[in-house]
Design a binder for these strands. Sequence first.
DNA 1: TCAATAGTTCAATATAATTGAACTATTGAA
DNA 2: TTCAATAGTTCAATTATATTGAACTATTGA
Lengths: 103, 103
Amino acid sequence: MVQFVHPSTEDITLSGVLGALADPMRLRIVSSMIKKNDCMSCSEAAPCPNMAKSTLSHHFRILREAGIIRTGKVGVENRNVLRSEDINKRFPGLLDEILKFAD
Amino acid sequence: MVQFVHPSTEDITLSGVLGALADPMRLRIVSSMIKKNDCMSCSEAAPCPNMAKSTLSHHFRILREAGIIRTGKVGVENRNVLRSEDINKRFPGLLDEILKFAD
DNA sequence: TCAATAGTTCAATATAATTGAACTATTGAA
DNA sequence: TTCAATAGTTCAATTATATTGAACTATTGA
């Protein structure tokens, strides 16, 4: 059984958030998640089919460990949710400000 | 003679800005620059004496090539200025929002 | 039971960061 | 005008991180 590691809200760092969102691929993932405002599987959230699934898995791990998404396994797939509330508690307004300029 | 390369305002990218500011050292450099609101030499702007000057030079280059600072040589030292106006033209409000959370 | 699906982990390679040493350019003093 | 000091760059080597294919785990549904 795979256990996912998520930082607590107070452990979310600015460098972690910025570093996670600095990658265009990861920014697009987060951007597509906020648009749907819903849980998404990894392949659904990643608008980039020509990428190794191991790389994709890596990107989701970075987002997870930065405290940006929460991942849970439901059946055969992962469900990813944006941790908007937690990020806003830690850095009010930051996420929206960044996502304003995504794509 | 060393020539510094600076991107034009429209070539400043979100990934570039976020990536540049994702490093704690570089964020501190930018943070110390906005506080003084003035030109600063590299060693003056970098509040971290125990770091190789080649590494410092590398960090200033990243900031420069991301379009965050402008560097000019005056006498024996470099003068660095924050490109606040350019960044705000490209991504209004973003820089302030990020720097709000930098210690 | 077994193939299909969704993703992780691992080992290898490719790319980026860090550093010491050698270099350039400018100043200021002998 | 020579020469040491200052401020930073560039280079080559090391270290760290990213990317990928292949093998693996876990769950579903036929």
